[in-house]
Each structure stands twice: as C-alpha cells, then as structure tokens.
C-alpha cells in the first residue's frame, strides 16, 4: 500500500533519535500533567514577543505523512499535557481520525477521540485510544489522519477576529492573544477545519500554536517530539536542508480543503477522497 520513496526521509539514525526523544518526552509528560493546568506555556508565549528570537528569519511549516501514522495518540496526549488543554473528549489542539473502508462499502467509516466507543475503550475521557471495533470485519483499507490547526497563509479565523486577538506571525504561525480575545467564537465558526475550540476555563478561544513557546527556543512542537513513527514533521522552509523542506520538495503534498482558499501550511501526503 505504501508507495512512497523513503530514501530522502529520516533514516535509522533519525528514528533512533526520535524514539529516544519520545521516551524522554513521555517521561517528562508524567510530570508535566500535574503542572499543566496552572502553567500554560502555550498561551503565555503567544501573548508577547519572544526575547532573543527573530521571527523574520523563519518560515515554519508542518508536514504529516499519513502512511506512517499508527494511531497511538501519543501526540494528542503530549499536546494536552504540554499546553494545558482540557482533559476531555471535546477540546483538542490536535486529534487523529481513523478512516476504515470495509469490504463492499464505498465510503469510509470515520471516528476520532470524541467517539463514544473510543472513550469507552480508554475508560476515561482523559485518556485516548482507538477501540478495536473492526476486529471481526473485513477491512479493505484503513489509515489514520492526524489533524490540527493548519496555520493557513490566508487564515479565515484571522480575517474575522473583531479585535485582532488572533493574528498571523511573521514566521507563519497563527496565534491567539488570550489577553485580548473577547470570546465571541467568530473564529471558531470561520475555521473550516474545526481546529478551534472555546477554552471554558479562560473563556477565550484556543487552538494549536505549533508549541510556539518551544519552537522559538529551537525545540520541536510536543506532538512532533513524541511521535514514534516520524508521521509529524516540523521545520523551517527557509532552511533548504530541514526535514520539512525535504518533505515538501520530495513529495507531492496536499492540503486539506484547498477549495476553501485558506492556503494551509500543514502539508499532507497520503490523503484519500473521503478525508475532509
């Protein structure tokens, strides 16, 4: 099924490095969870300029290789812990969708973290996993699609924000200033990807920041850090040798809902007709 040429992609060394980082990050997450609720680095970093960081020098972008995703959902857990996202099945900065074509069916069956069977399988809305509902069925084709904010080049959320609390940075990230958001949720409506949600504790809108507090320090976003398969790729398009530059250059990448005209900077490979 997988037809992609891997030569240009992460080799064994990269894999080991990634796996090592994943292990460290996973260990760190256990501790991070307890402090995540009070200390929200994601939101605070978004509120102001970052010292010692020049946003004119970078052009961040994100890549998702759906062929590699195994649906382990470590990315979802890492994101929630890193950014203090509410631990329930209805607020996500990133989530993973499962697409399954059963034999004889023309359209995919789709489910994700808000699915009641998946919640039941994990036993709690605070933990995330896919259940095994298709074990007795004949599956023709199945794959996972990680989703998140697409940090669009022409973001409709930024266009509609009445106060300018949500804005596009020079380096490509779309952020929300929680000090100025009035919580009207116009941006939540305007996002075609369902990437935004209302943060009920702070009473402002919220979404993925590409872990802006991390990337401005030279670190990877938490989801990229913990991904054990290299599905998620992040980097600087200004650096021609970066993983993301190679990913975009060496693959025929796609974006979600191109007809919306938002021009996402999250690039996918391995999308399918039913992915929306």
């Amino acid at each position: 099924m997988k037809q992609k040429n891997d030569k240009s992609r992460a080799g064994r060394r990269t894999f080991l490095r990634t796996a090592g980082k994943a292990a460290v990050a996973a260990a760190a997450l256990v501790g991070a969870r307890s402090v995540g609720a009070q200390d929200k680095p994601g939101t605070r970093a978004a509120a102001g300029p970052v010292e010692g960081y020049n946003w004119n020098e970078h052009r961040w972008a994100y890549g998702i290789d759906t062929y590699r995703c195994i649906g382990c959902l470590r990315c979802v857990e890492a994101c929630k812990a890193e950014n203090g996202v509410s631990l329930d099945a209805h607020h996500f900065r990133t989530w993973v969708e499962r697409y399954v074509y059963l034999e004889g069916e023309e359209t995919a069956r789709v489910d994700s973290q808000a699915d009641s069977q998946n919640i039941a399988a994990s036993g709690s809305e605070k933990e995330y996993r896919f259940d095994n509902r298709y074990k007795d069925k004949k599956v023709e084709k199945a794959f996972f699609v990680p989703k998140m904010c697409n940090h669009c080049s022409r973001p409709s959320c930024v266009q509609v924000c009445p106060t300018g609390a949500t804005y596009k940075t020079k380096d490509g990230a779309v952020l929300i200033d929680h000090e100025h958001c009035i919580g009207c949720q116009y941006c939540v409506q305007a996002c075609p990807y369902g990437a935004r949600f209302f943060n009920d504790e702070e009473r402002v809108t919220d979404k993925c920041t590409w872990c802006y507090h991390r990337i401005t320090k030279g670190l990877m976003p938490a989801c990229v850090e913990v991904c054990p398969t290299g599905t998620r790729i992040f980097g600087d398009l200004n650096d021609k040798e970066s993983e993301i530059s190679k990913f975009v250059r060496d693959n025929r990448v796609q974006v979600l809902k191109p007809e919306q005209g938002n021009a996402p900077t999250c690039f996918y490979i391995g999308l399918d007709k039913d992915v929306s």
Binding site: P162, I182, Y186
Partner: peptide
C-alpha cells in the same frame, strides 16, 4: 451574554480589526 469576556466587548470598537465583518 454570549461573549467569553463581555468586559472586553468595547475592544472591538476601540482597537478594531477592520477585516472582521463583525467590527
């Protein structure tokens, strides 16, 4: 009543973001 931060409602008029249809 709908706004998450009604006390900031006037921000839309004091510091408007002019591309917003709501401004």
């Amino acid at each position: 009543m709908h706004l998450g931060h009604p006390e900031r409602a006037f921000n839309a008029m004091i510091t408007p973001h002019i591309t917003s249809a709501f401004v």
